[in-house]
Amino acid sequence: MPAPTAFMAFSSALTGFSLVELFGTGVADTYYDALVHILSQATVDELLAAYEPGGEAGLPRLLAHPLYGPLARNVIKLWYTGSWEQLPPAVVLRLPVAPVDNVPRVISAETYLEGLMWKAIGAHPMGGKPLGYGVWAEAPAGHTH
């Protein structure tokens, strides 16, 4: 289902990437669906509800929360790596998460290729979106020699 505005705002604040960049990955809906599938709609709604009142300014507090903190960090890693990271047992105990859904995995080949960490590091995903012959000889982007 289409990723709701609240999820996108939350994601943008967590990742440091603009809404345009996030939508540009083409996998925002995939991530939202994966979260709902793994955590349940109720948990995702609860997480977003916990974020909304404070917004970006409230993130430090939310990230320190024993339940919302680990969930938010998993949302960051989802966007950065395209993979689901296993939630710690203490978190799982409090959630209706099926063990089969909480296994570490790449969500899809597409999410792997859209991982934001590759953009963040000024590179491209290993095995995809190549820069072209010999570009590795050029100075890294933003470099002033």
């Binding site: 990742t15 960090r73 960051i76 950065y80 000024g122």
Partner: peptide, 26 residues
Amino acid sequence: SSVDQLVDGEGRYGADLRQRLNAIIQ
């Protein structure tokens, strides 16, 4: 591992995470 270190180990997020990741990987 660098993402894990910055997010889980150092509690970074947002623009700070993005910049810091770039700096250490580079």
